[in-house]
Design a binder for these strands. Structure first.
Lengths: 175, 175, 175, 175
DNA sequence: TTTT
DNA sequence: TTTT
């Protein structure tokens, strides 16, 4: 459509370990269950209340799926950016169901781990480094190598290029 | 939860006119059906393809509901910011269903009309003015009147305050 | 302007303790210095490189300023949402300078603390609870008390209200 | 840094035609000047006031730069997503200056044209089609061709793939 | 059901 | 310098 945007931003915690499935070509597809929560004080009772919302996230982005598989676990805190997709399916009785998910398509979306290294429920190997960009190519000519990435004018740029995250180019993964 | 974020950003078009319901106190609650769409060229066939996603939006934010009721119609293009909520319900057969919506809670969310005045499918009265902030108070002491809103230091600030959108304070609505 | 959006989202760490100034009425205005950083592997050298970007944040939002003052410190990790503003000023020599800041206006913006309780550089009192919404009223009729906030139709809603964060209504602050 | 996010979202209008520079390899780098604006009613005077904010955008993303060059002009309305970068430079007198820009790095950022076809100040050729994804690869194996992009489980997925925008793969550009 |  |  003429100029549309479909974006979801979540910061929350995994309710369970990532679920990993494999495509025919061996690529991982990862499902996450993420909780966000809000609390407030009830105006009448004065009690503090809390409501948790659960989100289903599906990561087709190959690189981010690999990061999720390796570094996330139950309890991990993440920043996730994806898009809303609703799909229709039928349960065993044939009843129509709809499920809405936050999807990180191939080469799209973002995933950033917000835990400190070794935190999370159980310690662990995963990075406290930084999050993963899905905006990134597997192509042969990845931008960060270019000395011209920053704007030369109008003066001393201080150089320095962009930076990336969990790039598909980083064959020996990111940390 | 410790530090969570649940945010949806959509730019899309209304598939039909807004549906307005009334709460007991007369406040409007507005439901929108918004389409976002992506197109791409199929790598194999070379054809251009398109996929449309439909989103259900519920506006409890009183002020934004009023704007939606008055200014939006089928075909209108909007920027919407809300949060994801999934609710469970039962159809007439008693089957469990889940519906995920983008919700603009009271005093929360954003709605900005992106159509030019008089455009949309059918011309019309509604504003192409500017968007609606749900971040805004009905209280008595609204910020924009304060000459101190901008930071005085470290030098001449140039003064000037924020700006608002569809404020609850604007009793005679916004344009 | 007809439908504009000006939004900045940062997740990063404070480079120093918050700076607090007071308006004439005693309200705090808080300045934060926040670092975001990206790392990538240089394609030529194979080295891992990192670039840090520093951001100046100004919190006029009364409630969030209070939260920042009380709970943030050097090293704290936060989610911040505000808007870009550039202001012109003159240094002591009279030279024109421009400074671009992320501003959280009154009743606007968001601040969510992402540290675990007691973490950060030095332990501390601040919440690991959840972040602060600037979208929230000081008015007398705050939404979360309403039993009608959720949509009644089309079936059993499961009730449940919104949730808030660091509300101006919570006179005895939020945790 | 461990898990940081640096994101700017703008919806606004171009104050002038795009400025295009060329890198040594011929790739375009485009600078945009974008206005966002807010209006509000002054509580004391009752007057409607408006404040415009001007943003400097730099597009290194090769594909989006090409779209900007071809389809944007003074007055165009766009959705832009990039990151904040501040660079230091010296004016002719040797005085230090800082400029903060919204940067769309290579393979990153988004640009979506929000004008209707032929609208804008002067009619024109550019697309009102759909927005540009910077998240997209020039690699040989672009996702949309994959029949497995959607999740197979837990039931009939309905297939259907993602969608893209202004892909680097679309050699014969996008509309 | 929108939009191109 | 845009837009309403």
């Amino acid at each position: 459509m003429a100029g549309s945007v479909n974006k979801v931003i979540l910061v929350g915690n995994l309710g369970r370990d990532p679920e990993v499935r494999r495509l025919n070509n061996g690529e991982p597809v990862v499902n996450l269950r993420i909780a966000t929560s809000e609390s407030w004080k009830d105006k009448n009772s004065g009690e503090r209340k809390e409501k948790t919302e659960w989100h289903s996230v599906v990561i087709f982005n190959e690189n981010l799926a690999r990061v999720a598989e390796q570094y996330l676990k139950k309890g991990s805190k993440v920043y996730i950016e994806g898009q809303l997709q609703t799909r229709k399916w039928q349960d065993q009785s044939g009843a129509e169901k709809y499920t809405t998910e936050i999807v990180l398509q191939r080469f799209r979306g973002e995933l950033t781990i917000l835990d400190s290294r070794g935190s999370g429920s159980g310690g662990g190997e995963y990075a406290d480094d930084e999050g993963g960009g899905g905006q990134i190519s597997r192509g042969g000519d990845f931008g960060r190598s270019s000395p011209m990435e920053r704007r030369p004018a109008p003066a001393t740029s201080g150089g320095g290029g962009g930076g990336s995250r969990y790039s598909d180019l980083d064959d020996d993964i990111p940390f």
